[in-house]
Amino acid sequence: MDPDDPVAQAWVAYTYGGDPQPLIDLGILPANERETPTHSRPTRILRMSTPDVHSLDPISLRKVWPHEAHDFTPWLAKHIDRLGATLNLRLEQVEREVHLPGAGRVDLTAKQAETGARVVIENQLELSDDSHCLGLLGYAANTEASILIWIAQDFTSYHKSILEWLNAADTIDVYAVAVRAYRVRDDIFVADFRTVVEPTSASSRTTKRTTSTLYAGFYGPLVDRLRREGIRPVGRGGYRGQYRSFQTGHSNAIYSTGFPDGRPTVYLELKEEASYTALVRHKEGLDLAENTVWREDKPWIELERDSSFDLYGSEEDADAVRQWLGDNILRFREVFQPLLDQILLVENGQ
């Protein structure tokens, strides 16, 4: 009998019980010594080889990766699939030492394969500290990232509470991941990732297509289109989740989009009542859709689509909604921008 023959291995499993295994490891007897197969387990004891079992000895992360930027970050970029497997995320298009406008340098960026959502990864090889936590908050506020991953040796209860608070807002997905290193032999090491904090919706889903990452995937093409048209998204303090905000060129007015009650809506939001009142004076004669609403409870002008949008629906529906939002943001700019420039420049004494 050929020890490498998988059919023979299967026969051994059926005859002697257990899973198919290489015959050489089971110590199969010569043909004249075998017992006739029966439905009960055989009385003869098989000669099993003793496996070579090694212990895992925890060691300092610095023993494996002496320098965070020069050693650990390149290793993680090369083995990003291991981190992704821990978080059930498919990560791709990994880049190292990326400068993000308004946020500074980050260790790694990537994209979630299923949604195209931007992922920002921050590393450290010690216990979580305030400096890295502050950096992570900066990435949350100032970038278009939808997923933040903070890797550290371990996390304090204080830092975990901050990340859990961020996840509760459902505008960005935040993961805290503890990394461990073990020595098997003198020249063999093992790395292990363990999830410490994850989005509240992540544990109940088989894929990490959470609400915030789905909105990020939806908004990506719309943001790109408006950029090409000269309308840039608001970075610091800009909306996330189901909303996005765009610059008007004035600090106290923005264009925005959102889905209140599931209905696609575009807005012009002003911060000052006086500016809004001045704009209302020009209301008559403006080329706007009939269902444009001039709010009385806040200095906003809004236009709502007549049908709702299912974030989990077809890509064809998503394209139609993106087209509608983009067309109407551009219409708002065409109608309101000259008035905004006139009113706000006068108010600012320019």
Rank of each mutant, 00 (worst) to 15 (best):
V190E: 14
S212T: 06
H250K: 01
S203V: 08
G235N: 08
P233D: 03
G262I: 10
P199A: 04
P260A: 02
Y267N: 14
F259S: 04
G238F: 00
G235K: 09
A191W: 04
N252G: 14
A202R: 04
I188A: 10
T211Y: 04
A178E: 15
I188S: 12
R183I: 14
F193H: 08
G258H: 03
G258W: 01
S204L: 11
Y255S: 03
V190D: 06
A253K: 00
N252E: 15
E198H: 07
S245I: 04
D224W: 05
P199M: 04
S212H: 01
G235Q: 11
G217L: 02
F193K: 02
Y215E: 09
R244I: 05
D224G: 01
Y243M: 15
R185T: 15
K208W: 11
L214E: 14
R194V: 13
S201R: 05
P199L: 01
L226T: 00
T265M: 11
Q242R: 13
V234C: 01
Q242D: 09
Y215M: 09
V196H: 06
V266D: 03
A176V: 05
I254Q: 11
Y243G: 07
V190C: 04
K208T: 09
R232H: 11
P260G: 02
R180N: 14
G238N: 07
L214I: 10
G230Q: 05
G258N: 01
I254H: 08
R240E: 05
A181E: 07
A176T: 06
D224N: 07
R244W: 03
Y215W: 15
A178N: 13
R263E: 14
G238R: 06
G249L: 06
A181R: 03
T195W: 08
T200R: 07
G241M: 06
V190L: 15
A216F: 00
Q242L: 10
V184C: 13
G220L: 15
S245N: 07
R228Y: 02
A253W: 00
R180P: 04
R236Y: 12
F259T: 06
A191F: 06
R228K: 12
V184K: 14
R227S: 11
T211M: 08
R183M: 14
R180W: 12
Q247L: 12
R244K: 14
E229P: 00
F193A: 01
T206D: 13
P233V: 02
T213E: 10
Y239W: 12
I254M: 10
S256T: 08
Y219D: 05
G230H: 03
H250I: 02
R205E: 08
V184S: 14
T200W: 05
G235V: 04
Y215P: 06
I231Y: 01
T265W: 08
G262Q: 13
Y255D: 06
Y243R: 13
E229H: 11
P264Y: 09
R180M: 11
D187L: 13
A202F: 00
